[in-house]
Design a protein around this nucleic acid. Structure first.
Lengths: 332, 332
DNA sequence: CAAAAAAACGATTGCGCAAACGTTTCGATG
DNA sequence: CATCGAAACGTTTGCGCAATCGTTTTTTTG
């Protein structure tokens, strides 16, 4: 691997001149600049960004710490963040915590050792040691999706609006008995969606039986079991609201296992749109979270935070979009 | 940010002792080791991996250069690679080339500047400048999915086997007129699947009209248009084989637009399984590519390559799995 | 035409670390 | 009790670079 001093020697100039030519950090006469560029080409010099980072104490890297990168919702967010960071000349370290807080802390420590300029985090559940760590170490950080700590900038979907629009849609179609399949307990998204559901239903003057609210679904299997439980009730719901894509897959599975038709026998709708939704039956009525916007805004905020550590914190709630299809019909 | 020499001062030992304690690279008496560890805790020392990398000329990083990270197929591969690298103590830089060869070259140069230990690449189409670059610069590299250059280690699906199994399945169901919606022209996957399709059909003694082979579908929109063209034929195919997930989405869209039922009016099957496939109609018969295995093997090969630059190159073809569902019925 | 200012470039340091090399101490050995 | 060897630790260098500080040459100005 060649170094800057080899370039200097080949070009017959000093290392500082080479450096200044390559970084355009001070005037160098065209003749010398040409010599330098020729020497670079000739010996095939590739600047060493590691040495550069050490000297500049800035790496141009961002840690992206996601709780489950295989989840298509997060895939979309990762994609948007990568695109935005790339546009800004930053490069992304991708890490999957697998929803394990200990692993999350370990990964964040590792990223910190690598001196990432900042971190974008979809935090796991409690305990929130990693957030304490980030705060204490003063690492620029933006929280995405799960917004639970206003010591940091945060970007996510407006869950209250999302649920409210879904409930509106349900009530318009005369549904009164609505079951909801929620996600992992403890996540702020779960908490917010639960609260929003209760509130929105209450506003419509509808009382929700305790049994209609299914919390603690960590996997599609959990969601399947929960949905079965809902449908076994003597007075089962006429509609099921799946609060995320895992819940939806699980719910659809249960519905399929029971041989029910959607929306004839049961209405279904939920949160998290996906690309196939338009071409398969049942065509699911879904709230699309604004993944692109979330990703872009998260990158924006992080870059701003890296730029000035003492700017005021921001929490940004972006509006989801209801895609009305046919899985939610009129109540019987 | 604290440094190793501050730790040394706080512990009353030399920097080398601190270094050796932290890296366990030589014997240090328990007393001094304890002093060091206490000093580390007290002043909150975080080793600087950038400086370490510079000194060791090895970064413990891997570049993951993917042509479209939002594609669920690649998402799965990314997930598997991240998991395997993480297990081996490597961390992954994620880059999206958006199938642009120039961008690909630029990203690879950038990664090389950052002195990644190796690169895993899902290459874009021609021109293959980035491969030449990687080869000339002697960067450890593994190609995934698109295998077209045996200067490198390569891992992918056995496309010939995949197509053969699909054709077998079609022929078992008495289909003779089979249209195929292929992906981007120039990709080795496209070429291989085209060849395999011709060969497998020929083996069955079935002649494939030129119009049944639709090449050059760069997007779902292309695939939709191509499928429409296939279905407008005076003697249209009785089955459509979508050679990847984008082609499938496009095909399904066209079929839906024409109001056709699957499999009653037209049979459909393809490559690339997805999580929802079991719970929606039509339940698609699909070849699942072994994404987990591909990712794991790619990381394996890369680590081996990093370990010894002169080991023989390997090309690994992993077996896909046919998931028979109901979208492909008996031919009329 | 001397003095000052500006233009162009070079020598050197230090970023934080690993480890090669060097030093001290102390017990074993003849 | 000199000598040797090993155990335990310290001093120092150099990884490749950016940029500070310094030097030389050229131009401007009174």
């Amino acid at each position: 691997m060649t170094t800057i001093s080899e370039v200097a020697k080949a070009a017959g100039v000093s290392v500082s001149t080479v450096s200044h030519v390559l970084n355009k950090t001070r005037y160098v006469s065209p003749e010398k600049a040409k010599l330098v560029m020729e020497a670079v080409d000739e010996i095939g010099y590739i600047p060493n960004a590691v040495a550069r980072s050490l000297k500049l104490s800035s790496t141009g890297t961002v840690g992206l710490v996601i709780s489950a990168i295989s989840n298509p919702y997060f895939s979309d967010i990762i994609c948007a963040i990568e695109a935005e960071c790339s546009k800004r000349g930053l490069i992304v370290f991708l890490c999957d915590t697998q929803d394990d807080p200990d692993r999350e802390l370990e990964l964040i420590r590792h990223l910190h050792q690598r001196r990432v300029d900042g971190i974008i985090l979809a935090a796991s559940g409690a305990p929130k040691k990693s957030l304490d760590y980030l705060f204490e170490c003063d690492v620029p950080c933006v929280l995405v999706d799960r917004l639970s700590d206003d010591r940091f900038d945060q970007v996510g979907t407006d869950n209250t609006a999302a649920i409210r629009m879904l409930v509106d849609h349900l009530v318009t179609l005369h549904h009164q008995r609505v079951g909801i399949i929620l996600g992992q307990p403890g996540f702020s998204t779960t908490v917010e969606r639960t609260e929003a559901f209760r509130a929105a239903m209450a506003e419509k003057g509808i009382e929700v039986p305790h049994a209609f609210i299914s919390n603690g679904n960590r996997s599609t299997a959990d969601a399947t079991a929960s949905t079965h439980r809902l449908l076994e009730l003597t007075e089962p719901p006429t509609a099921i609201l799946a609060s995320n894509n895992l819940a939806m897959i699980g719910a659809m599975r249960a519905i399929r296992e029971r041989g029910l038709r959607v929306p004839a026998d049961i209405s279904v709708l939920g949160i998290d749109d996906f690309e196939w939704a338009d071409y398969f039956e049942p065509r699911l009525t879904l709230m699309a979270q604004p993944c692109d916007e979330i990703g872009r805004k998260a990158a924006d905020l992080l870059i701003a935070r890296i730029g000035s550590k003492h700017r005021p914190r921001e929490t940004v709630r972006l509006s989801p979009v209801l895609r009305v299809r046919e899985s939610c019909g009129e109540a019987a």
